[in-house]
């Protein structure tokens, strides 16, 4: 296992370098997609135990979106659910020997934060219109516009750094302890790393919801309902 700070290029597709986090991400995508297809191919009104568990997970995400954003969770469920499931699975991919979590590399975290950044702008423009969304930067007064613009950038960076720092540090600590002492000693630290990974997935998703909800405004719910 190499350093999380260094990127190991596995191969090239033309001029594009394909690194290890990308390959692990593909594996995670395959796992989640095939798993989702297998779980949802025989859905029935009379739910089986497996379907009921799946519905519980989706319902929990919907409930979290509804509680956090105070709006209908339907339009935001794919984005928030995908972010949570991907980050959670990526963080827990460290359980597989030889695999390194893609979120331990800043490029993956930056990609996630970039998606959140554009999603915030997309939902803001969709809910308020272009000028309405732009007007949110002048709240509560026009004087706050520079700070709001800076905050939009910095909070995106904070998303990146928070997730990257937590996951990378965990991988670092486990790697250092594993190289210094025996085989079973890092197990508690790995368990703690799993907990950290789950919490970070939750935090990233909640922050994404908060950022999106912040641009929807107080009248977002009626607009959403009217749009439906």
């Amino acid at each position: 296992m190499g350093s999380p700070l260094s990127l190991h290029i596995l191969f090239y597709i033309g001029p594009v370098a394909v690194s290890a986090p990308v390959v692990v991400t593909w594996a995670i995508m395959l796992l989640l997609s095939v798993g989702a297809w297998l779980l949802t191919r025989r859905l029935s009104v009379h739910a089986s135990t497996r379907q009921a568990a799946l519905e519980v997970v989706v319902a929990a995400i919907q409930t979290q979106i509804r509680d956090t954003m105070r709006t209908d969770p339907e339009p935001y469920l794919p984005l928030i659910g995908t972010l949570f499931l991907f980050i959670f699975t990526a963080n827990w991919s460290s359980l597989i020997p030889g695999a390194e979590p893609p979120t331990a590399h800043i490029e993956t975290d930056a990609a996630l934060a970039l998606i959140v950044f554009f999603a915030v702008a997309y939902y803001g423009i969709k809910a308020r219109g272009l000028f309405g969304y732009a007007a949110t930067f002048a709240e509560p007064s026009i004087l706050m516009m520079p700070l709001n613009l800076i905050e939009t950038i910095t909070r995106t960076f904070s998303l990146v750094v928070r997730l990257f720092g937590n996951v990378m540090s965990g991988v670092f600590v486990v790697g250092i302890v594993l190289s210094l002492v025996g085989l079973l000693v890092p197990v508690p630290l790995m368990a703690l790393d799993l907990l950290t990974g789950a919490v970070q997935a939750y935090i990233f998703s909640v922050l994404a919801m908060v950022f999106i909800a912040g641009v929807l405004g107080s009248d977002s719910e009626p607009k959403q309902r009217k749009g439906k």
Partner: peptide, 20 residues
């Protein structure tokens, strides 16, 4: 890697939206 991961996450978003 940033571009690939961004595309990967967007594709995963579409896949999970479609199949989950």
């Amino acid at each position: 890697t940033l571009v690939l991961q961004t595309v990967n996450v967007l594709v995963l978003l579409w896949l999970l939206r479609r199949f989950l």
